[in-house]
Amino acid sequence: MDIIIEGIKQAVILLFTLDPEVIGITWLSLKVSGIATFISLLIGVSVGTLVALTQFPGRRIVVSLINTGMGLPPVVVGLFVTIFLWRNGPLGFLEILYTPTAIIMAQTVIATPIVMGISLAAIQQLPANLRLQILALGATRLQMVWILVKEARLPLLAAIMAGFGGVISEVGASIMVGGNIKGYTRVLTTATVMETSKGNFDIAMALSIILLLLAFFINAVLTHVQQRERPR
């Protein structure tokens, strides 16, 4: 019990004294996971919508693959990305292993199927007649897609939250491709793991609390946007 109280105390101290290292770690977590979520949003929503609106042979297999990808274990992604980014690996010429860019890459791979799967389900659950109706009113195909995406914005925002929640909290991939380098690729989760193994449970607890606060704040903002206009 002491450790929890001590952790909360430490968290408050670290936050309010604006400890530069902790602020740096927090900012990096936010930046890396934010960018990864944003990229996964671009890929995930467009591919998800495309798959939802088209019929082609093997479609069920593609949908199954996307749904399986939603549960992709971060360590598996971390391992594969590491092997690809090794100096002597296929993408070694990029020289980005153990950089924040590598973490963004891995997290994008983790978040994309999540966003894709939820977008796909969101667009698909719209009534099929809606498409016909929109087209009958003289909309182009592009306009139709845009209207459908707007119609599905509630679940799409949920997709953003799920994607962001998935990557800001993952540790396996970040530690493998980032290396937990002080002041460079150390994010909240990898710092928590390290402080735990150092036996600094109070600081580990403080970092966890900051992570939870951050996740809550982001989700509160997104929920606000999501719930502002309830569809009739």
């Binding site: 930046k31 934010g34 960018i35 944003f38 020289e95 153990y98 950089t99 924040p100 860019t101 963004i104």
Partner: peptide, 21 residues
């Protein structure tokens, strides 16, 4: 998002030969 995006090259652009693993 674009501000965050633009900040990315700044953290990624470290001279490579200066790095030691």
């Amino acid at each position: 998002m674009s501000v965050v995006f633009c900040a990315l090259p700044a953290i990624a652009a470290q001279p490579q030969h200066k790095n030691i693993i």
